[in-house]
Design a protein around this nucleic acid. Structure first.
Lengths: 337, 337
DNA sequence: GTGAAAGCGCTAACAC
DNA sequence: GTGTTAGCGCTTTCAC
């Protein structure tokens, strides 16, 4: 900046004035300074500014896997909202590894980020308290553990599970299987809870062999479906814990000679972009991904602006999107016999 | 740090010593300092450190869309390699908007990042020169324009296009369509060039109506396929410019009553995770995504370490992965008649 | 080996 | 209005 001042023939503070509160200087000075800035290709040093102001404009987002379409879409929503408010975003891919999560959290603290998003993460209470002690605002998005006293935006997972299961029941299915994601993640267990609730409400008999545990990946759905279809009394419908698993599920079913939806209905969860383009297109529970991201960013920015209220919990509802991967049991039977 | 020094009862510079070159201090002092650090929850301020050292440990990655599976996987690879070398990564989603790209580049410069990855981006020569003038190392990964004098890691797009097309020719197809991505992206045009080369080498007649232009999205492949299948002389095989389009293509074909691969073979490009799980699983050209990311990071880190050589260009080969979405024309005809 | 002090580039406070 | 200056929290250099 000193250079700019010299070049423009004015004092350093004048340059500051031009940069910050432009109105206070006269036009000629203003022009001279701006020209000099351009000529020298001057760009302020954000490090120095942030050090002085005691405040960066950097946020961090910690998530298990950026290559997961759902998480990538969340990240995109967060990035968009952050950029609009002039914040940059440090991407932290934790791979579900709590060591890496911790390492990244420390790096973020050292880099003086003014806020952190934890997405789909199993955050330890201890870590949350440390962050709160340091006055680093944070927001949890669809956290994998519950009961933490922090701002949280979450999908009503159980409601979504009910929605999907009810849909399958309404189609006449009675042997409805459920593929759960990692059992330590609450998004898994709550979706399964919704499944149970729907069965109970409809007095549909429950067979515990129809609930299998796997992981939220393509492979997980694939492998779980193989197990399910090897049962003596096979399910006529499957509620997969997320869209990735549903895709894996359809693949496995097809390989085993069962057509979807004619001889097996499959429902997913998430309504990722892909869901409209699978073969057949996926009936799924839509999470309002963009809203989740926007809400979370809004919450975080409010905290950053100094909002000092008790933790807020915002729960967003899901919606059923009926597409081609589910059909009525009657239809099935007609085709089978 | 002053606090730590006071708490430990030693001078500030002693604390520095303990933090940096631990050997130079005696054991008791060392222990005292470390204890004090823990007790106070001391975390160094990376802003101050970087300002002083004139060097951050932050990188930036600029890409058009983090929700694109291919780009997300690249980002993941870059993130992993960067983390391993103790760098953080600022995520910049440009949405293919050159304004946003420029805004982000400026933000990265101001934040004093020590390196920038441009992924699948149309970078203007001017921008590259500005960055080079500022001595900010950069690496281009599969850039959308060629001829820039910068370190570049790229996929041999044309070779991949030939591979896919040759495969379809080998299966006996003669009416092979090609869906191109955005025409201003060289990954589109070069893949199409490979397609042309393969046709020519095999003396397969070329029909220009079989080459349609779209965009690298699910929707793009979907819509382009509708156009192709509305032709009087319909193709028996389609080479889609990337996996997303291939998925959209299969969807559209299925809706129009053409089974894949029995009555239409479809090949993609990228070999994204999803490709193994589509229905049918996708025959595609595999880009070594992880290697691309690792190579790029390596190149960037070398520049950061001060390597001063002419720009390097590293081209990686693709590989054909034959799965279920392509089959021989003979097979088709047997089934059709 | 130990401690003090300068200074990275900025901004905010203060003096003119 | 305009200009000077102290100091953010580190690291590095220099003096002891």
């Amino acid at each position: 900046m000193r250079d700019v001042a010299r070049q423009a023939g004015v004092s350093v503070s004048t340059v500051s004035h031009v940069i910050n509160k432009t109105r206070t200087v006269n036009e000629t000075t203003r022009r001279r300074v701006l020209e000099a800035m351009n000529e020298l290709g001057y760009k302020p040093n954000a490090l120095a500014r942030s050090l002085r102001r005691q405040r960066t404009n950097t946020l961090g987002v910690i998530l298990p896997d950026i290559a997961d379409p759902f998480l990538a879409e969340i990240a995109r929503a967060i990035e968009g909202a952050s950029f609009a408010h002039n914040y940059s975003l440090i991407l932290c891919n934790s791979e579900g590894d709590s060591e890496k999560q911790l390492a990244y959290t420390n790096a973020l603290i050292e880099k003086q980020v003014v806020g952190i998003f934890f997405v789909a993460a199993g955050v330890r209470a201890e870590l949350v308290e440390d962050l709160q002690g340091r006055k680093v605002p944070l927001v949890l998005i669809d956290p994998e553990v519950s009961g933490l006293e922090v701002d949280t935006v979450l999908t009503d997972q159980a409601q979504g599970g009910r929605l999907a299961t009810q849909h399958l029941i309404d189609l006449g299915h009675e042997r409805i299987a459920c593929i759960s994601g990692e059992p330590e993640r609450s998004s898994s267990t709550e979706r399964v809870a919704g499944y149970h609730q729907a069965l109970r409400q409809n007095h549909t008999p429950f067979d515990e062999r129809l609930v299998v545990t796997s992981n939220f990946q393509y492979e997980g759905g694939y492998e779980a479906t193989q197990r399910l279809l090897a049962l003596d009394e096979r399910p006529t419908a499957i509620f997969a814990g997320n869209d990735l698993m549903a895709v894996g599920c359809i693949r496995a079913a097809t390989e085993l000679g069962r057509r979807v939806p004619e001889s097996l209905s499959v429902a997913g969860f998430g309504d990722v972009r892909l869901a409209s383009f699978t073969n057949p297109p996926l009936t799924t529970v839509a999470q309002p991904i963009y809203r989740l991201g926007a809400l979370a960013t809004e919450m975080l920015l409010e905290r950053i602006s100094g909002l000092d209220s008790p933790p807020r919990f915002s729960k967003v509802e899901t919606e059923l999107r009926v597409r081609g991967s589910t059909t009525s049991l009657k239809g099935t039977q007609l085709r089978l016999f």
